[in-house]
Design a protein around this nucleic acid. Structure first.
Lengths: 167, 167
DNA sequence: AATATATTTCAATTATTTTTGAAAGTTTGA
DNA sequence: TCAAACTTTCAAAAATAATTGAAATATATT
């Protein structure tokens, strides 16, 4: 397999994988492209390489920067902007985990707390509902705490965690 | 908040959450409904409660059974089928993790192995591509191993893991 | 200040995914 | 074997999400 084919395969597969996890294809692909690029890339080049429109590129680059996993880089003497990706994978995973926690898990916890706090009268259906949503609240809460714990380790938390698990 | 409102809020929020993680709304909602139900439910009742069509209910119930997190239950003397959800949350998380590993992570690893194995000639771009995809392969591989390790613990792995992390 | 270059915004379009509903299929029991 | 009860399938429709492209906005240069 040659370089062009391999790169293309990587970009395609990563885009599809993103979709399966609720991340839009282009966003995943731009990130993937920046990840495997040895230098900062201009918007023009991103559009070119992924065959996407200016608007699409602009919007998804903003989204990636909002996630904190892509940065602007200004080249001296260059008018236009260049982009680079966070390339440290521990850092990347940490940021994604934190954002997903903030955007999705925290609100879910809030809801679970609310609905599990209803005044349950005696019907078995209501009792079971409260019981289950409480359990869910505990479980999700613990999972979220774990994310927090693990991602404040900073350096190579995944490796360190693996070692702990082996003991 | 009364029971009906709480239940509805739970079903709605859970459905939306599912979407954000690449699981279709109805599938997430059916699962949520079964999770908080104290008894097995018929397809008719699911359609009724979630206001969905027969086809939709049938297809998503099959998908949930394929994931191994919903089962059929036959009531004696009843012609139609009833459904129940896996209610143990450790078991649920384990099954979801295993399925996602099998369906998504393993294929991604296969691709990463392929594309990182190209004969890299001397251009910095190619060298960097190989380097990054190799790192990605290692990282994803370790994450996948961790999932495997953690989910074979069986009982209350999340709690046990939390304890380990605190030490 | 005027012009050129670059980026963002967003209504309209296009693509994708989900849902419907009716026909076909299956199972049970009379 | 027939018919009633129930489930699955799948082409068409609807809903949702992503993308385009051109006008508006912003920024730098002369």
């Amino acid at each position: 397999m040659d370089f062009a084919t391999a790169k293309n395969k990587f970009l395609q597969t990563w885009g599809a994988l993103g979709s399966q996890w609720g991340i839009n294809k282009t966003m995943a692909q731009i990130h993937a492209l920046l990840m495997v690029s040895d230098e900062a890339i201009s918007m023009e080049d991103i559009m070119q390489e992924l065959q996407i429109s200016r608007g699409n590129a602009s919007m998804n680059l903003r989204a990636l920067m909002d996630w904190g996993i892509v940065y602007k880089e200004n080249k001296p003497g260059e008018r236009r902007e260049f982009f680079i990706a966070e390339k440290d994978l521990d850092e990347l995973a940490t940021k994604i985990a934190k954002e997903r926690s903030k955007r999705e898990i925290k609100p879910a916890l809030k809801m679970l707390k609310e609905v599990s706090s209803i005044q349950a009268n005696e019907t078995p259906a209501e009792k079971h509902f409260v019981e289950q949503t409480k359990k869910l609240y505990d479980f999700v809460g613990r999972a979220d705490e774990m994310i927090d714990k693990v991602t404040t380790y900073k350096d190579n938390w995944l490796g360190k965690l693996m070692i702990k698990l082996l003991k």
